[in-house]
């Protein structure tokens, strides 16, 4: 292609892998600076799973009394219903925070006009989105770890049982597909320009299908397949099966982990592609600044 204009320098821009990493790092740090200037925001994330787990635990005790553990074991394979609920609520907070934080980031940036400023810069989407999702990841893992530790004290359960390392592997690998889902979710927010109701609905649909308080085996077959197509379901069950006497979906840890790995390999690419395509479609019409 022939340049039809004079060519001068690129100002102070120096494109390199180091400056690309610099974008991700700067976005990540800025996100934390901003959230830390809202008092209490991070603490509330950490407390939420404990409260969420407390509801069914107390309900179980109130309804079934001393028989609660036995009844629960009949349905799930473990009598440790408290840890079962705590794992469910804590993994749920990881999933929901990933969606909330990425979704709200896009929405808020649209409203404040900073999204257009970001889009006018040469930084690549993947670099900026990596910074945002990394922030969401760290914040959700902090909430997960805090809730598990505090919850274990409150509900008097022992975290250090079963295969701890394997449970962590399920959490870490399970988060990678969430990256892709959050990109796709971000694309949806970019398109519909609304976050609140979408996130409200999504988080309860997610909570329902990933079985935060019950095993998905109680679902009728169709709903079970829907739940199994959702990576957080595998993550939650993997953590539970590693720590408690709950069965893996495929009977062994490595097959379940392989499924999660397959999700991890495919979904980030799919999510990112969906994001770029949506963005292009929007730029063909009203642009990202319209809200």
């Amino acid at each position: 292609m022939t340049a039809k204009t004079v060519h001068k320098n690129l100002g102070l821009s120096e494109m390199s892998w180091r400056s690309s990493l610099g974008v991700t790092k700067t976005v990540l740090i800025a996100r934390f600076k901003i959230v830390l200037r809202y008092k209490g925001a991070i603490v509330f994330d950490m407390i939420l799973p404990v409260i969420l787990a407390a509801l069914p635990i107390l309900l179980g005790v109130a309804i079934a009394g001393q028989a609660a553990a036995q009844n629960f074991e009949d349905a799930t394979g473990t009598e440790n219903y408290k840890l079962y609920m705590l794992i469910g609520a804590s993994t749920f907070i990881v999933v929901t925070l990933m969606l909330w934080l990425v979704g709200y980031w896009i929405r808020r940036e649209m409203e404040t006009g900073t999204l257009e400023s970001v889009y006018a810069s040469p930084a690549k989407r993947v670099e900026v989105l990596s910074g945002v999702t990394l922030y969401a990841l760290i914040r959700s893992l902090m909430a997960f770890a805090f809730a598990m530790v505090v919850g274990s004290f409150i509900f008097q359960v022992d975290l250090f049982q079963g295969e701890m390392a394997l449970a962590l592997a399920f959490v870490v690998i399970g988060i990678i597909p969430l990256w892709g889902i959050s990109f796709a979710f971000g694309a949806l927010i970019l398109k519909v320009k609304e976050a609140d109701s979408l996130i409200q609905v999504m988080q309860w649909v997610v909570a329902f299908f990933m079985g935060i308080f019950f095993p998905i085996t109680v679902f009728p077959p169709f709903l079970r397949y829907v739940a199994l197509s959702f990576p957080p379901t595998w993550m939650t069950n993997g953590v539970r099966a590693s720590l408690l006497d709950v069965a893996y979906f495929f009977g062994t840890w490595y097959l379940d982990l392989a499924v999660l790995l397959a999700f991890a390999a495919v979904l980030p690419l799919v999510g990112y592609t969906v994001f770029l395509r949506t963005e292009r479609r929007i730029k063909k019409n009203e642009g990202v600044g319209q809200f």
């Binding site: 120096e14 610099g22 810069s121």
Partner: peptide
């Protein structure tokens, strides 16, 4: 500083 980083300025 934030926008400087987005413009790949060291």
């Amino acid at each position: 500083d934030y926008f400087g980083a987005l413009y790949y300025i060291p």
